[in-house]
Design a protein around this nucleic acid. Structure first.
Lengths: 133, 133, 133, 133
DNA sequence: GTGGTCTAGACCACG
DNA sequence: GTGGTCTAGACCACC
């Protein structure tokens, strides 16, 4: 199963992208509490990335209490993770939009013009029938 | 005159924020061709930032041809800067919104929910007076 | 200034030992809010350890909000860190003693005998006039 | 008969916990020389643990000469095991307390405060019935 | 100079 | 097989 692929053009750190994708996967029910996440080595191979990078992402997820490592077995999704990942997802999306809006605002552009640009860009993805499912 | 203040909590490089703010100032007519930009030291003191950081921002602006150094005088806004700053501003805003939208999309959230969040966040700033909120 | 040295014989991960030592240093007032912690490279050299290992410790401390990285400057002790490090120190000590006591209890030894052993071991360090200050 | 249960929250290796519990059982007379230890499979089922893990613990106990395998019968407690398990128990308890004390010492806390914490924690278990709390 | 990210590869403990 | 730790070294951005 292909859980995620990285947008190679992204400027954010890879491990951060993996963290987000995992949260999205849990929030969307693709990965459920008790499920084992793909093994570090396996995911690293799939993403063409160093295992340490994946390990770091998993470590961060454990620090947030969303994943738990089971000795000798792997890493599994924690019990209460679904709700928290849903909330996290909402906040991630909100924060990204909020930042873009703030930066647009300080540009002193006309609000109407900003809104127009948003609609324009939004339309571009809206047609793509649900983006990258 | 307070040309700009930095969002202290930002994760973007300071020099990049300064560059953008300067472009916005020119695009918005706050700084006009022939005007002298604040001196490196002065701006650095005002922003509580290392002078090297301001110097780097000015260097970038000169490299783009938007600022020009005048011997013995300092740095001034170049002749054709206004139109180019307006274009730059539009592209900056567009790019940031585009990225936010893309990232929201890959979260697998319902498009309707994403749009709702945008409206919500947009409303928060819409009430505020124009310019720097 | 020598902030800390590691007990080479310890079985705990090095980065974890560094984290604890830093908390102790802050709790004890050796490192105060606003102070820069020793640089990653410097501390690594001092401890004869790989810089990445120190970096990981610092990262964990930042994740706990006790340290903050200042771009291009280094890593400094956060504002409210003292009280939290004091609390953390107490909890670390309590937890270690609690575990030892628990394990002793499940051994089915006579409580009096356990207590005797504790007194014996306690006396050994008590004489050392304040341990490794 | 329930010989032992594991502290599920422990960070120590499971097989090591089993080894210790077995020593404690022998030292406390719950398991006597000549008695058959529970079979690997049975104990594994009881502890909800991988049989390999139990097998490893038994292997270690045999390597120490405390358990002996009896062809076709299983594993039994060795002849001289009681005294040696008592000694082992004492040393295990002593070592754990010693480490906790050492770690508390390097925290730079006041010895009096450390001792106070010990008393506090000790009191918590002192009221409980003997054996496994 | 500073920290941050990433890679590569070794070694260990656990199951 | 699994994850965890550590080392070594490269490269980057920032100040």
């Amino acid at each position: 199963m292909i859980l995620l692929d990285l947008n190679s053009g992204e400027e954010r750190p890879i491990y951060g992208q993996i963290v987000d994708r995992m949260k999205f996967a849990v929030a969307g029910g693709v990965l459920r509490p008790g499920d084992l996440a793909p093994s570090v080595r396996e995911l690293a191979k799939q993403l063409l990335v160093n295992p340490n990078t994946v390990a770091r992402a998993y470590r961060d997820l454990q620090a947030e209490g969303l994943f738990e490592s089971v000795r000798g077995m792997g890493v599994q999704v924690a019990e209460g993770a679904v709700e928290r990942c849903r909330a996290a997802r909402r906040e991630i999306v909100r924060l990204r939009l909020r930042r873009a809006i703030d930066e647009a605002r300080q540009s002193r552009m006309e609000p109407a013009e900003i809104e127009a640009i948003f609609r324009e860009e939004w339309a571009k993805t809206a047609n793509q029938a649900n983006g990258q499912p």
